[in-house]
């Protein structure tokens, strides 16, 4: 009995050490943004005095709020578009009989296994030809739909009883009405899952903006912070770099603290797409 207790204590100790290793770097980062520059690299997250100098100097050097706005705008619009358009496609694939339905389904399965490395450069070429480089178009349009979201909606919608659809048709609802008045309210978990995964994906995306955006005023946060950190603009002031990273991280962490369960459940679902 006693040995069992010691074993358990050891396990809890292991878990505690592990969670410290996952949390401490973020505490250190947040601490580093409000310490005097000379103390940023100290192990302790607490400095001798509290100062906002790092934030001030970061705000002077880069248009961080413009960038925050760009990120929000792009993430919100493309997430809304994915919810709308992919639920439409998912509904058609799940509940409507029409010629070509299986073809579309197979095409979607095919695009899911297509490595992005293959289409990255030609997609950039398309942006150039369309004149979308350095515009919101380039940041939003390629992210207006996602095969994963379509398949998730399709799967979810297949479980809705046919009686509901028949009754709604008798009441004179058209297919859009059925989708938005009957399927949407019944599919909140699917909407939340797609919403969280897609929003996070866009908010954190760095490679695509680095390719299609050159103008500082159009850059979303990950690109802005990357170029700030590696581009020498931060002049090796570690505190200002951490401040920029913190501005990008905080909104997500705060949202995560409130919606933790949804985040974990959603992203575990996204893991299933492979």
């Amino acid at each position: 009995m006693k040995r069992w207790t010691i074993g358990k204590v050891m396990l809890i100790l292991l878990l505690t050490l592990a969670s410290i290793s996952f949390i401490y770097p973020f505490l250190w980062m947040m601490g580093g943004t409000v310490k005097p520059e000379a103390e940023v690299m100290n192990f302790s997250p607490f400095g001798s005095t509290f100062t906002l100098d790092s934030y001030k100097s970061m705000i002077e050097k880069i248009p961080i709020f413009r960038s925050l706005f760009n990120s929000l705008l792009v993430s919100v619009i493309s997430t809304a578009s994915v919810l709308l358009l992919c639920s439409m496609t998912g509904y058609a694939l799940a509940r409507l009989k029409f010629r070509g339905r299986n073809t579309i389904f197979n095409i979607i399965l095919f695009t899911m296994v297509l490595p992005f490395q293959l289409t990255l450069i030609p997609l950039y070429v398309l942006m150039v030809k369309m004149g979308w480089v350095d515009s919101y178009m380039a940041l939003i349009l390629p992210y207006t739909m996602s095969p994963f979201a379509i398949l998730l909606f399709r799967q979810y919608f297949m479980a809705v009883p046919q009686d509901l659809i028949d009754a709604a048709r008798l009441d004179g609802l058209n297919e859009f009405g059925i989708l938005f008045r009957i399927f949407w309210p019944l599919s909140k978990p699917a909407l939340i899952t797609v919403g969280i995964i897609h929003f996070m994906g866009i908010w954190n995306e760095a490679l695509w903006p680095l390719i299609v955006i050159r103008q500082e005023s159009m850059m979303p946060m990950p690109q802005m912070v990357t170029l700030f950190a590696v581009g020498g603009q931060a002049e090796s002031q570690v505190g200002t770099q951490l401040a920029a990273a913190a501005i990008m991280t905080l909104p997500i962490i705060v949202t995560y603290l409130f919606l933790q369960r949804h985040f974990i459940a959603s992203m575990a679902t996204s893991g299933l797409k492979g």
Partner: peptide, 21 residues
């Protein structure tokens, strides 16, 4: 929840942070 924390944070922020560490 603690183990999951870095998963939700952007790779850029994590890398900028680890570069200093």
């Amino acid at each position: 929840a603690a183990f999951f924390l870095p998963v939700v944070v952007s790779g850029v922020a994590v890398t900028v942070l680890w570069r200093q560490m």
